Amino acid sequence: MEKSLAIIELPQLALAFIPVLVVIFIQFSWSLPQKRTIHALARMLVQLLLVGFFLSYVFESDSAWLVLMLLIIMVFFSSWIALNNIEAPKCELFQRAVFAISISSVLTLLIITQGVLQLSPWYHAQTLIPLAGMVFASSMNSISLSGERFYSELANKVSYKQARNIAFQASMIPNVNALLAVGIVSLPGMMTGQILSGVSPFIAARYQIMVMCMIFASAGISSAYFLYLAKAKPNASS
């Protein structure tokens, strides 16, 4: 049965914040800080509304250069955000993060868009940008986890090889858990969105398999390469 996805009006969208207010009330009642939560919610709201407006323009422009520029900006932002929890010189780490995210993303997206989806043209924004966003986010989180754990282990005088292995394993835990839970505990975003828009669950499942492979691979490759580049650090003994 085909059914188009309902358009959410702004008054209806406001209802989604009711359970959010419950969480903020709990924080207030327990004397927990709410400032960061409110800031994050406000930033989320503004960012998503702005990106919705901007992406509408990008989709209509059909410009390869505009899509490429947007992807580069996404790489730089994801690389910087990945370093938030890592206690080490940010300038050097930023360069490593950019290299790691770029290489893992180009490899993964090339195989997915040209091998699996056979996307034409390659810069088809409505397909490439959402997929790239998933890849960048996965790489960003993986580098953040692996970097934080890696430098914590080095601070405890652990050898580079042992710290690398521990950090890599830690960074892959969320992705391995996601593989184990998908279809049983959760229906992830891609599959849920397609089912809500009326796509057959069998087709949606194929797309979700593609996305899970894409996210797992980008996380693993970016984390491994970031840790490989960290070997050049003087105090990262082998």
Rank of each mutant, 00 (worst) to 15 (best):
G220C: 05
T192Q: 15
F226N: 00
T192P: 12
I129L: 14
F99P: 00
L50Q: 03
A236F: 05
Q34T: 12
S142K: 02
F202V: 14
L145K: 00
V185I: 14
Q194T: 05
S223E: 08
Y151Q: 00
A137D: 01
S78K: 00
S144N: 06
S197Y: 07
I143Q: 07
K3Q: 10
L107D: 10
P130V: 01
I24V: 13
N235K: 05
E92S: 14
K35F: 11
L187W: 01
L10R: 00
I103A: 15
F136L: 13
I81E: 14
N177M: 14
A155W: 01
S104T: 02
E2Q: 11
I111V: 15
W80T: 06
L196I: 05
H39I: 10
S139M: 08
V199M: 12
Q126D: 13
N177I: 04
M74G: 15
I73P: 14
Q27C: 12
V116R: 05
T192E: 13
Y57S: 10
M44W: 04
L229S: 11
Q12D: 14
F226M: 09
E2R: 10
I195D: 11
A64Q: 03
S144A: 04
A170M: 07
C213W: 03
A97D: 07
A16M: 13
A219Y: 00
R96E: 02
A155S: 15
T37F: 15
L15S: 12
A236R: 04
L5C: 08
Q169S: 12
M140V: 01
I26M: 08
F59R: 06
L107G: 13
L179I: 12
L70Q: 02
G52N: 06
F54R: 03
M69L: 13
Q95V: 11
L71P: 05
I18T: 07
N165S: 11
V158N: 11
S4I: 09
S152Y: 05
L15Q: 11
F150R: 00
L179A: 14
